[in-house]
């Protein structure tokens, strides 16, 4: 479904992503792991168009999307959440998701029919799905960090993506919130048939839900394989898991 081939990106001479490869098949949950500064977020930014790769190809459904602006990529079916909470602070929770939904249905240039009558059902469905419906009318900026993180994901779902990219979905969450999030990710793949690509520091989480794991180090992709193979790989152990695994 998504194929990243030998992508490179440098900032002022610093190679953030260097020859990274990645393959995502339909229906899979793929995790990207690696130490801080390994280039995971940069890789995601390259895939979703926030950044433009220097060289290399990013193929999504047989189409090269390298360097295509983010709003175009989103329309093609890739949607993402961000590592640092990135929501519409002054809008209500409902409106946050509604905007994504409106954009998905190409209604954002609709000038005169009230927004209140638009995409209500679809938006409610998503809020139900992630468990935010009771907070729908709250201003999103006033939510707790955990709820904002969930909303972050809900917004991404508003675009009805085929491929959902999650950048550290559980960063800063409590253990309970984390397990809720894990359930949700599992449910999304089974119920909605989503393909999920995510990166995460919580190794337990990664090894419990990912079908395949891609390991990055210093901008390079070392290996992409099922969890047990990754665990047994010597190169990975040296480079990343080190003593802790």
């Amino acid at each position: 479904m998504l194929r990243v081939e030998a992508v490179k990106k440098s900032f002022d001479g610093f190679l953030a992503v260097n020859e990274a490869d990645l393959l995502v098949e339909k229906g899979e949950i793929i995790a990207v792991i690696g130490p801080n500064g390994a280039g995971k977020t940069t890789l995601f930014n390259l895939i979703t168009g926030q950044l433009k790769p220097d060289t290399g190809r990013i193929i999504f459904k047989d189409e090269d999307i390298a360097g295509v602006p983010p709003y175009e990529i989103c329309k093609k079916g890739i949607s993402r959440s961000f590592q640092i909470v990135n929501i519409f602070n002054r809008l209500t929770v409902f409106e946050n998701v509604q905007v994504a939904m409106l954009s998905h249905q190409k209604k954002t240039f609709n000038l005169f029919s009230p927004a209140k009558g638009q995409v209500i059902r679809e938006t409610k469905e998503i809020l139900d799905n992630v468990g935010l419906s009771d907070k729908a009318s709250k201003i999103s900026g006033s939510l707790s960090h955990g709820d904002q993180k969930v909303l972050e994901m809900a917004i991404a779902l508003g675009n009805r993506p085929e491929l959902l990219i999650l950048d550290e979905p559980t960063a800063g969450l409590s253990p309970e919130e984390t397990s809720v999030t894990i359930d949700m990710i599992n449910r999304l793949t089974t119920d909605l048939g989503l393909t999920i690509l995510f990166c995460e520091h919580d190794m337990e989480l990664v090894f419990s839900i990912a079908h395949k794991i891609m390991v990055m180090q210093q901008g390079k992709s070392i290996i992409q394989a099922p969890p047990d193979q990754v665990r047994d790989n010597r190169e990975v152990q040296e480079a990343y898991l080190g003593g802790s695994a």
């Binding site: 979703t48 168009g49 926030q50 602006p69 983010p70 709003y71 989103c74 329309k75 949607s79 993402r80 961000f82 990135n86 929501i87 519409f88 602070n89 002054r90 809008l91 409106e95 946050n96 509604q98 905007v99 994504a100 409106l102 954009s103 998905h104 209604k107 954002t108 240039f109 609709n110 000038l111 005169f112 029919s113 009230p114 927004a115 638009q118 917004i155 991404a156 508003g158 675009n159």
Partner: peptide, 21 residues
């Protein structure tokens, strides 16, 4: 309108707006 809501979303967070298409 939907346009108005979208506009306010852009005000709050243009980067995220691009990411939702």
């Amino acid at each position: 309108s939907p346009f108005g809501t979208t506009l306010q979303a852009i005000r709050d967070n243009p980067q995220r707006c691009e990411a939702v298409g």
